[in-house]
Amino acid sequence: MFEQRLIQLPFGDIVHSLSGYTVVLFAFAVMFVVLAIISLPEKPVDIVFGTDGYYTKEIPVDLMKFQRFMAIACGIATIGAITTGDVFNFTLFAAFIGILNVGIVAAVKNKPVLDAAFSYGLVIMMATVPLFAGAAIIGATCGTLSIGELMKAGIHAPIVAKLFLLVGVLGEGMAPFYIGKAEITRSPGAPYILMIHVSSLLLFLRAVEIFLMV
């Protein structure tokens, strides 16, 4: 399932390709990009406690445009992370997804949301260290960064490099920080905020494939 390459798109040393596994992830990501393009923002309704009154929040047009741009870019970065065939390129796409996620969240003007976005921003800044360190250890000990070459030669990457990559991906995609996620996503901005979940899930699934193969 992992080994078979269906499509290949070479960019010099970095060869993008799709296997039977990643083609599913690719289709999923494309679907959510299309959803982000066509959908309109959701308007949250707040009910005044103890009365019958309620009010709807208007989403400003510039906020909507910005979040939509970030969501579409995040989907495209996710597609890049899914298709790339190079460990270092994968880490760069992961960093890209992290910064776009911060952008989606930070656009909302709300103190608790901004607090959570700041904490998450610190985590994504830290996560670049294990990501680059993991890729560099693979490069130094295996002599190549290409996932295809590593597979062909049957080289196993050192366990510490895999751990570094894993924790880096978790930091960029904030997948384990579901507690933090609940804080962050308590904000207007649906459906664009969905892209955070989609991108972190797909990034993690792609990372699993890389760990199983190298």
Binding site: N89, L92, A95, F96, G103
Partner: peptide, 18 residues
């Protein structure tokens, strides 16, 4: 490895946009 640099430039671009 031109694609690395494209991604890196895009990160910078998006960071500046935010």
């Amino acid at each position: 490895r031109g694609l690395d640099t494209i991604v890196e430039a895009s990160i910078f671009f998006v960071a500046f946009a935010i």
